[in-house]
Design a protein around this nucleic acid. Structure first.
Length: 265
DNA sequence: ATGACCGATTGCATCGGA
C-alpha cells in the first residue's frame, strides 16, 4: 500500500497536473492539504473516475484537507479534538482495511504560525500553532493506544533539523524552526511515532517545499516540512519512501511536492 | 530574506502562505 501526502496549494488550481501525477504514481491513499475550497466545489468526480473514494473536510478560500483512497473507507472523522471553537479545516482521519487489519491514516495541515514573534512575545498565530500541536499530541496518544498501523501524513510546517534547510541561519526566528516548535514536534514523536523518511532514507538536504519567490527552486533553497509519522505497526511494514520532486518543475506547480511511503500493509 | 511569487476573493487590493 502506497500512502502519499501532498499539499496542493488549491486543488482547483492543480487540476491540470494532479490527475497526471496520480496516474503516474498510482498511490493507494493520498492525503491532500490546502485544497482551499468548500466540499461542494471539490472536483470529486475526476478522482472517482480514476478509481478513488473521496473524503473531504473543506473550507472556503483557506486550508481544507482531503483523503483519496482506492480502498473503501471504513471510518471517516473530520476535525482534531480539543477545541470546539477552532473553525479551521486542518484534520481528516480515515480507516481502511489492510492485508492484516485496519490502517488508520490522517491528513494533517498543521498551522504555519508566522510571524512567530511580536515585540519579542509569541504572536497569536504562533500560539495557535503550539496549541494545535499540543492537541495533536493528545489525540495521537489516544490513537496509538489502538495498537494499529497509523500514519499521520501531512504538511507539518516543521523543519526537523538544520540539515533539512538550505541555510538554517536564515530560519532561526521562524515559526517552522523555533525551539518551541521542535519541542512540540519531538514530544509528538516521542509518544512512539517514527518519521518514515528518516527511518528508511535519512539523506540530509532533501526538500518537500520550495518558495515561489527568489528563484528558490532553481537554487534548491528548499525545506523539508511534509512528513509521514508512523506507529510501530506501520513503520515495521515500511519498505521505502520517495519524494516526487520532479512535480515541482511542472507547469504551474504547487510550492510543495508529494512524499510517498510504500508499506506492506 | 527573496529573482518580477501564487491563489482566493467580490477584488480591481488585500490576505495568507512558508
Amino acid at each position: 500500500m502506497e500512502i502519499a501526502s501532498f499539499n496542493v496549494n488549491s486543488v482547483r488550481a492543480r487540476m491540470h497536473s494532479l490527475p497526471v501525477w496520480l496516474q503516474r504514481a498510482k498511490p493507494d491513499i493520498v492525503c491532500l492539504q490546502e485544497i482551499k475550497t468548500i466540499d461542494e466545489n471539490f472536483p470529486a468526480q475526476v478522482f472517482e473516475d480514476l478509481g478513488y473514494n473521496v473524503a473531504l473536510h473543506g473550507q472556503k478560500s483557506y486550508n481544507g484537507v482531503a483523503v483519496l483512497s482506492k480502498l473503501p473507507f471504513e471510518e471517516v472523522t473530520a476535525r482534531l479534538p480539543g477545541d470546539e471553537a477552532d473553525a479551521q479545516a486542518r484534520y481528516l482521519e480515515v480507516v481502511v482495511s489492510g492485508k492484516t487489519g485496519p490502517v488508520r491514516v490522517a491528513s494533517i495541515y498543521l498551522p504555519n504560525g508566522n510571524p512567530a514573534l511580536e515585540d519579542g512575545e509569541r504572536s497569536a498565530k504562533y500560539q495557535y500553532k503550539l496549541d494545535w500541536m499540543a492537541r495533536l499530541k493528545v489525540h495521537a496518544q489516544k490513537l496509538l493506544g489502538y495498537e494499529e498501523a497509523l500514519i499521520l501524513a501531512g504538511d507539518y510546517n516543521v523543519i526537523p533539523t538544520a540539515d533539512d534547510i538550505y541555510d538554517a541561519a536564515l530560519w532561526a526566528d521562524d515559526a517552522l524552526f523555533l525551539p518551541a516548535t521542535h519541542a512540540a514536534y519531538n514530544a509528538l514523536k516521542w509518544l512512539g511515532l517514527t518519521s518514515a523518511y528518516e527511518q528508511v532514507d535519512g539523506r540530509t538536504h532533501q526538500y518537500t517545499y520550495w518558495d515561489y519567490q527568489g528563484g528558490a527552486r532553481p537554487k534548491n533553497h528548499g525545506i523539508r516540512i511534509d512528513h509521514l509519522l508512523c506507529s510501530a505497526q506501520a513503520v515495521d511494514q515500511l519498505k521505502s519512501v520517495r519524494i516526487d520532486d520532479y512535480v515541482r518543475d511542472g507547469e504551474k506547480p504547487s510550492d510543495h511536492v508529494p512524499i510517498i511511503g510504500v508499506f506492506d500493509l
